[in-house]
């Protein structure tokens, strides 16, 4: 036990207490949380900054408007319902198709309009929101993810999480839905996290439920060596999100849409630490490097360069599979 604690320390692994006290408290002013916790606000800011986001079909504020969702999704075969203040992927309903009057969920289940409406009402009631506050329901464009991930995703949308520290992309992982995560790309719920080589944009290691894996648990496809297209552009996009919400410790979730290219899905003020397991390395090294580089440049390109300098200087590769 003690020797493992020492090893974790030596590997620069950051624990939750340390993340909260050392990074979130000093760098994430509480007043800015609203910008990322409220996904409507995030969307608005992103559009204002010229950053692409999934198109908003409609916003439902009150229970009496819940039935209006049918009017909002008119002309769209598929869509997503999500709480404006949700966390951890909770309360997200993905409708992939419609058959007669039924709405087909990501997992193939058919829902009636009343059932979708009930889900919206639950969202409005605050079942999925932080602290159980009454919430709003967002109805938006369903991302058609890039085919590169087809062989490694079970139903839902794979996304790319980049941890941006003080405006510098620090670490990244590809999150792949599994059967046990119910199509959601959240590590807590059993999604696969694949570490990404920050210099090349290729996946390295993978983790599922905190344990190292080599193959996708549902398909058996290898998870290493997967090249993410347009990686430099994604890094730059992640770095630019720091301007939307100047939180020092920020999680940026992006998707690669087959038609629209990279889109910002949401921002997270309390990104988790599973990214370290996915990459087989602790965060401390890169975070210290970024701290040492302060004052940090204002141009997003220059901030990405700060990150590159760190990873280019690393001699040892992450712990191999």
């Amino acid at each position: 036990m003690l020797s493992r604690i020492r090893k974790l320390k030596a590997a620069g692994v950051v624990g939750i207490n340390n993340r909260n006290r050392g990074y979130i408290m000093p760098h994430n002013p509480r007043a800015l949380y609203a910008r990322v916790d409220d996904k409507v606000e995030t969307k608005r800011l992103a559009i204002a900054a010229g950053i692409a986001v999934p198109e908003l079909y409609g916003l439902i504020h009150a229970v009496r408007e819940a039935k209006d969702f049918e009017r909002m999704v008119e002309g769209h075969k598929d869509f997503v319902v999500k709480p404006a203040h949700g966390s951890g992927g909770k309360g997200i309903l993905v409708i992939t198709d419609r058959r007669r009057d039924m709405y087909i969920k990501g997992d193939g289940h058919a829902l009636t309009a009343a059932e979708v409406q009930h889900h919206i009402e639950n969202v409005l009631g605050g079942v999925y929101s932080l602290g159980g506050q009454p919430d709003q329901a967002i109805i938006e464009y369903r991302v058609k993810f890039d085919r590169v991930f087809e062989a490694v995703s079970y139903r839902g949308v794979p996304d790319i999480r980049v941890l941006v520290y003080r405006g510098v992309p620090a670490m990244a992982m590809l999150r792949l839905p599994t059967r046990s995560s119910d199509g959601r790309a959240n590590l807590h719920q059993g999604a696969v996290g694949a570490g990404i080589d920050m210099l090349t944009g290729a996946t390295t290691l993978a983790v599922c439920k905190n344990r190292r894996i080599e193959e996708h648990p549902d398909f058996g496809t290898p998870l290493g060596g997967l090249q993410i297209p347009g990686w430099p552009a994604l890094l730059l996009l992640a770095a630019r999100c720091h301007e939307l919400a100047p939180l020092g410790y920020l999680g940026v979730d992006m998707v690669l849409d087959a038609e629209l290219g990279p889109l910002i899905l949401e921002l997270n003020a309390r990104p988790g630490l599973g990214i370290q397991i996915a990459n087989g390395r602790g965060l401390r090294g890169v975070l210290n490097h970024i701290d040492a580089a302060a004052p940090l440049p204002t141009a997003p390109e220059a901030r990405v360069a700060v990150m590159r300098a760190y990873y280019e200087g690393l001699t040892e590769a992450p712990v191999p599979l």
Partner: peptide, 14 residues
């Protein structure tokens, strides 16, 4: 410092 459960969680890093 680390939480005890984290020591198990992060095992595979080291």
């Amino acid at each position: 410092g680390y939480r005890l459960m984290e020591v198990a969680r992060f095992k595979d890093i080291v």
